[in-house]
Design a protein around this nucleic acid. Sequence first.
DNA 1: ACCTCATATTGACAGTGGCAAGATGAAGAC
DNA 2: GTCTTCATCTTGCCACTGTCAATATGAGGT
Lengths: 203, 203
Amino acid sequence: METEAPLCAVPEKPRYHHGALHDALLAAAEAELAETGLEAFSLRRVARRAGVSHAAPAHHFGDVGGLLTALAAEGFRQFIAAMTAQQARASRDPQAQIVAAGLGYIAFATERPALFRLIFSSDRPDFGAPDLAAGSAQAYDHLSRLVGARTGGEDPVDIAAVWAMAHGLADLMAAGRMDAIQHLAPADRDRAFAGILARSIPG
Amino acid sequence: METEAPLCAVPEKPRYHHGALHDALLAAAEAELAETGLEAFSLRRVARRAGVSHAAPAHHFGDVGGLLTALAAEGFRQFIAAMTAQQARASRDPQAQIVAAGLGYIAFATERPALFRLIFSSDRPDFGAPDLAAGSAQAYDHLSRLVGARTGGEDPVDIAAVWAMAHGLADLMAAGRMDAIQHLAPADRDRAFAGILARSIPG
DNA sequence: ACCTCATATTGACAGTGGCAAGATGAAGAC
DNA sequence: GTCTTCATCTTGCCACTGTCAATATGAGGT
């Protein structure tokens, strides 16, 4: 017979045993976070969005902190991906790579402000959890290597300078506080950011 | 008879008409915010701390957003005070003043992380409210003038660079993410911050 | 056929913000 | 003095939240 195997990752029919509820809940949580923001985030709303009972999320993730921890780990993966995406469009020059990574940093914060706040300005995820800690460390290492390629050694202060400049621009953009730059056309904006980011690069 | 008049601003006896509940609630809210953080902030806990009924805060501030708005406005005043306090200890040189303001920025974020997040990384206060908007604008103007004293004109991009560097360091410190610098002795830490802040100053 | 047990649901609990209705008492009018 | 007014504060209620224990379901192995 033709196999009715799960060709689609998200089955349409409401079944008691969902089968892929873990991933479906993560997707619903990410959508919910993007729409309602971190501060209005609710386990029960996520459950409703996924079309599932109100206690299902807790079963898979323990509690709201567990779900946000999983979401933050995924957030760090997307965060690193945003940086590498910008780097791929830039030249191999170490300085250009650092600037590009910074632009990716800012783009992520601007396009996914709630996720950005979850991974950088929230106490609710458990940053000691292996998955999340690994993501966080990987993000730091990524920036660290970029700076190292420029300076030769990996001086923590040099790394902190580059990191803080990118993070400051990103966080202020996510919060909508950079009026002066927010109103610029995208190309002008990126030029302004690139110029600012360059100031933080040692050498 | 001896007058039992309110010599003390905060009466001890529980009276139906508190008299200074507005201020008492603000103080309780600030303490509550510092202890439990922004994400666990609760109107009812504030009310309990102030020794008053659970609905009293809403009467004075409308809703939780109103209380947080008032708290954020007070936060901006303390934020500016933290910068000016550091500036007073530095030389009159424009560059030194900018660095000092940055150190005050960072000190405020480090010592009052919850308040810092309230004014920079929260959607709960109403930033359109007159008091709060004025505080926010005043903080920007403060930094703007400092940069202007250094460069002559007040180029928004120059201001953004200085602001973002200070903000990035402050936010990462408030989140406890700057491991490399967090472990330094206070004096060394300030020296490192001063060096990094200086990189963002134009000229 | 039967059993096992991860998967998901149901129902309850305390806690929360917000609202309406009522209680209190300070301040002014007569 | 008494009476009225009205901001202040409380009480009681509602819907909603996260978490827990108890229950129902059904897929896979024996």
